[in-house]
């Protein structure tokens, strides 16, 4: 178990290192010499050299990388070009919005996806299965930003039931917060629920056909117990994996969803910064999402070992 976790930890650290190197290389690959750009119009070589020394650009690239990595590790992302505020402060104000959106969508996806997947697997080939599959297919085929637009059109513009946009902090009004978040979370959760449903269904079908399920039935257990205790626990590993891997899609989806519902979140910040060429913010946002992705998937791997004793004891997956 310890060996397994240490191995995973080392892999995650290596991945993070690769991620940071990629971001650093991307910034270096930008056209134009930053020192020349900063020196203003018609610079004399001395000023450029001085700026270059100040920025550390005269040092070898590996050293520059290590210095940069050190700053990033200390969450020192510099200041926003546009607002002049420290980037880390900006991130901290924007993150809660996105985290709330992501967690609510994940909740929607997990609950709807797992329930529909189990129901479809148990009633394989019958109307329930058919309906769940059709729903999942639609969920996969309808882009969430268009679903969002249609949701706004129907519930906000035509019916006026829900606010079309805006974020109310839960500290101000919990109901207002949830009313504002309901549509974004449903919209973002739908596509994910479709993926989770399909995965749950296929892994449940496989599990339900396995010998130990036959054993459980032969023991005289109730169908509910067979499916929910013996079956679901075994397909949880696959479902957990898919949730971890779908985090990327969730983050991407969050960016557009925030754009549509005008939520001042993390994704919104990223898109704004691209258009204002606010590079320190883009760099920090990219790094933070990538790191978040790696850490969440590390957490998923730890969860595996809790769900599946074969990993806990032997320290490896087949």
């Amino acid at each position: 178990m310890v060996r397994y976790l240490l191995g995973r930890l080392a892999q995650a650290a290596l991945t993070l290192l690769l991620v940071s190197a990629a971001v650093f290389a991307g910034l270096r690959a930008m056209p134009g010499d930053p020192a020349v750009l900063l020196a203003g119009e018609d610079p004399d070589p001395e000023t450029v050299a001085q700026i270059r020394a100040e920025l550390g650009l005269d040092r070898p690239v590996p050293v520059q990388y290590l210095v940069w990595l050190g700053r990033m590790a200390r969450l020192d992302f510099g200041e926003s070009v546009r607002t002049g505020l420290p980037v880390s402060d900006t991130l901290l104000t924007r993150l809660p919005v996105t985290l709330e959106l992501a967690l609510l969508s994940l909740l929607v996806a997990a609950v709807v996806g797992v329930l529909a997947g189990v129901a479809a697997a148990v009633r394989q080939g019958r109307p329930t299965d058919w309906a769940a599959n059709a729903g999942a297919l639609l969920g996969l085929s309808v882009p969430n930003f268009w679903l969002g637009l249609m949701g706004v059109l129907l519930f906000a513009v035509v019916l006026g039931w829900l606010p079309a946009s805006g974020y109310v902090p839960p500290s101000e009004s919990l109901t207002g917060n949830l009313a504002g978040m309901l549509m974004p979370a449903l919209v973002l959760g739908t596509g994910l629920a479709a993926v989770v449903m399909r995965q749950t269904r296929s892994s449940m079908i496989e599990v339900l056909g396995s010998d130990y399920i036959r054993t459980a039935r032969a023991k005289g257990l109730s169908p509910a117990r067979v499916v929910l205790v013996h079956g679901l626990r075994n397909s949880m590993v696959t479902v957990l994996t898919i949730l971890g891997l779908q985090l990327g899609a969730l983050i991407s989806g969050a960016v557009v969803t925030e754009q549509i519902f005008v939520l001042a979140g993390f994704g919104n910040l990223m898109v704004e910064s691209v258009f204002t060429r606010d590079l320190p913010v883009v760099q920090a946002a990219v790094l933070v999402t990538a790191a978040g992705y790696v850490l969440v998937n590390l957490a998923v791997d730890v969860c595996y070992s809790l769900v599946d004793p074969r990993i806990r004891i032997q320290g490896g997956r087949s």
Partner: peptide, 14 residues
């Protein structure tokens, strides 16, 4: 793993 850590939108933004 490293490529997967960049969601496509984040990659596109970068």
């Amino acid at each position: 793993d490293a490529v997967m850590a960049f969601p496509f939108l984040v990659l596109a933004v970068g």
